[in-house]
């Protein structure tokens, strides 16, 4: 009984955090976009700098008409937002926010996360297929090709970290970085991982699945209201977990030079990575689908293999 209660409480805590985080990130993104573009962004709703804008948007989205496209593939269309959101939430379980601030430290934590994030693709593809819309279908096709080809470099680039740490448990990986971060011998791995995260979260320059100027809204063209809201929710959740994972694997997790609590350091590093992702989004144009594939298969995968080789050689020589 206690186990069940604990599990429910944990799930609630994670959901609350994911929701809050998405609200903050959406507000942050709009603010950053605004200031990059010499605007101000949200301003009128709530406290300083319109910080309650996301909440107001959430209320609006909840109260909107539940529009369902004709000719949809009923259950698939209905399930798609849930399927794309669930993995974004599930990943939070295995992320070490602080020394003992982790919900479940699995000894296969890294494998768990990489396998769970791959599920996100399923939701995207279901949305594209179930909507009975050509833009959605094209978006889903692109997303399928894109997520699949960027999952591989992402996983390959983490292998160097696993080699160096000798463990798949994320807490152990962070603990091993107390002396020096894995970033410095494995800068290639970090770059590959970060680019792969950008591609997996469908952000510019890899936002082909949404591609506003080409596909209107991509796979979520036909969704509105709270169903639509689940997609950005999942997107920002995945962005955060991706950056958190990068922090864990390459940037020393909760380790920091100053006397701040570990989780503060972790959040600072993660949000800096998130900020860079947003900065990139509002600067670069979008790549084309074949260029995206080229970058993934011909460039990032060899690069991550070089990274593995280098790390292996380094370990063999040092030990």
């Amino acid at each position: 009984m206690n186990d069940v209660l604990a599990a429910v409480l944990e799930a609630l805590a994670v959901l609350t955090y994911v929701a809050l985080n998405a609200f903050v990130l959406i507000w942050l993104e709009r603010k950053i976009a605004g200031h990059i573009q010499r605007r101000i962004g949200p301003l009128r709703v709530g406290g300083p700098g319109g910080s309650l804008q996301s909440l107001a948007d959430g209320i609006k989205l909840f109260s909107k008409e539940d529009f369902r496209p004709g000719g949809r593939d009923g259950i698939i269309w209905w399930l798609a937002p849930l399927v794309s959101m669930t993995p974004a939430v599930m990943v939070f379980i295995a992320i070490p926010f602080g020394q003992h601030l982790i919900i479940h430290d699995m000894n296969i934590g890294l494998i768990y996360i990489t396998s769970i994030t791959s599920f996100g693709l399923l939701g995207v593809f279901m949305a594209g297929w179930g909507s009975n819309n050509k833009y959605s279908l094209l978006g889903a096709m692109r997303a399928g090709a894109q997520l699949f080809s960027y999952e591989i470099p992402a996983i390959l680039s983490t292998i160097g970290v696993v080699l160096a740490a000798g463990s798949l448990s994320l807490e152990t990986i962070v603990a091993k970085q107390s002396a020096h971060w894995f970033l410095f011998p494995q800068i290639l791995g970090f770059i590959v991982f970060y680019v792969a995260i950008l591609a997996e979260t469908n952000r510019t320059p890899f936002d082909l699945a949404e591609a506003e100027s080409e596909l209107v809204g991509g796979y979520f063209t036909e969704y509105s209201g709270i169903r639509w809201a689940m997609f950005p929710f999942a997107e920002y959740g995945t962005l955060f977990t991706g950056c958190a994972l990068a922090t864990t694997l390459f940037l020393g997790g909760w380790h920091g030079p100053l006397f701040l609590p570990g989780w503060v350091w972790f959040l600072i590093k993660t949000y800096i990575l998130v900020f860079i992702a947003m900065w990139i989004r509002w600067t670069l144009p979008r790549v084309r689908i074949d260029q995206l594939m080229d970058l993934g298969w011909k460039f990032l995968i060899p690069l991550s293999l070089i990274n593995i080789l280098g790390t292996g050689a380094y370990i063999a020589l040092v030990r």
Partner: peptide
């Protein structure tokens, strides 16, 4: 080119917005 592009947007973040309420 990527670094130069990001430098442009970074400089624009620092400058004052031009919009009017």
């Amino acid at each position: 080119s990527l670094v130069v592009g990001h430098a442009v947007t970074a400089r624009e973040i620092a400058t004052r917005p031009i919009t009017v309420f």
